[in-house]
Simulated scan of single mutants.
Amino acid sequence: MKKIVSLLLALALTAGLAACGGSPAPSSAPSSAPSSAPASGPASLPAASAPGGIEAFADLAGKNVAVNSVPISAEEFKAFYANTHGIEFASVKVTPTVLESTMMVQNGQVDGAITPVAATAEYFARQNADLRAVISDVPTDVAIALDAGNTELQSELNGAIRTLKEDGTIDKLTAAWVDNVTDENLKAEPAEKLEGADTLYVGISGDVAPLDYVSADGTPAGFNVALMNEIGRLLGKNIEFVVVSTDAKFSSILSGKIDAFFWHISILPLPETIAVTDSYYSTYISALVKQ
């Protein structure tokens, strides 16, 4: 009988709490916490916000982002963006490649993957139905990075870029390799080798399609390859492409492994030991976010 009375009292108490709007203390995380947060990932990086709400690049303010291979630390990048562009990110994770940054968005680890080339964000968005590109109003330019002490090569490259701008070649390459690119026409034909000519070793990462791309069979391709082939023709040099990871670009130049590497200027400071040519392509900082 005592057990029955106790049970009736417990049921009455529960009903009373429900009537007053009370509820038992939760035994698990609040419902607002991401239910599909990855089991692994950087311990210091908070999970991404709930999907949605990012309609423009500026909406990444206060969000967690990833950026691929910048020559400064994550905290320096965060401070630079806040001071220069007025966008303060909650956290920044530096990754070796655009692909890794993109996967962090897909896995819910960050809210956006920043890339310095709008065409790259749009290319990755076309390849992944769950992603879309948001374009900022922050301009950036693409140039060729090289050893600051190699002023002769810098002068030669600048002269070739200037000629290719003036004769309309760069406009044609941009239309073919960036504006109207498809997977079918992304592969560049290798340039004919010049007998007895000097060789210019150019680093390529394959990480910034459709500008910097390496096809499935390991062949360097994309806009930058097509451009360098034209530059080689003008300078009378053979161009040899060397696949180098993006985070090893500057060390590869300074060690003499390569003579040059494609780089994005006007967004971040460069090491004093690295110089860049004139710009040959202008674009905007962009990001990949979830649909």
Rank of each mutant, 00 (worst) to 15 (best):
A113M: 01
S245I: 04
S6E: 15
L211R: 06
K63L: 04
P51N: 06
V142F: 04
K2E: 14
A29T: 12
P46A: 05
A48Q: 01
L268R: 15
I161T: 03
S205K: 08
L200G: 13
K187M: 10
V70M: 11
T95R: 02
C20G: 12
A82W: 09
L99D: 11
A119S: 13
F250C: 14
R126P: 02
A50K: 15
D130I: 08
V202A: 10
S136W: 05
T97R: 07
E75Q: 12
S101D: 01
D147C: 04
D183P: 05
P190D: 08
M228P: 02
A79H: 05
L194D: 06
G232A: 07
Y284G: 00
D198R: 14
C20I: 06
N185W: 00
G22Q: 07
V5D: 07
F262N: 02
S155G: 08
G222H: 02
K257T: 15
N68Q: 06
T182H: 11
A119V: 05
G149Y: 05
F124E: 03
Q106I: 14
N224A: 09
I144T: 08
A33H: 08
V142S: 03
A133G: 04
P42E: 09
S73E: 09
L13Q: 00
D212M: 11
P42C: 11
I265R: 06
R132F: 08
T140Q: 13
A145H: 01
L254P: 02
A248S: 11
L234M: 15
V142M: 10
L157M: 15
T120K: 00
I253W: 00
K93V: 12
A160G: 12
M103I: 13
P271G: 10
L45M: 14
V110T: 14
M228T: 05
I170F: 06
G62C: 09
A121G: 08
N68K: 01
G21I: 02
V214A: 10
Q154S: 11
T84R: 09
L99Q: 15
L235R: 01
T199S: 10
V5P: 02
A50T: 07
M1T: 09
R162I: 09
G21H: 03
Y81E: 03
D171G: 04
G41R: 03
I4P: 05
G256K: 14
A191E: 12
Y81R: 00
R126F: 04
G21A: 15
I267M: 13
H264Q: 08
K63Y: 00
A121V: 01
A118W: 00
A129C: 06
P30D: 12
G41D: 02
I265E: 07
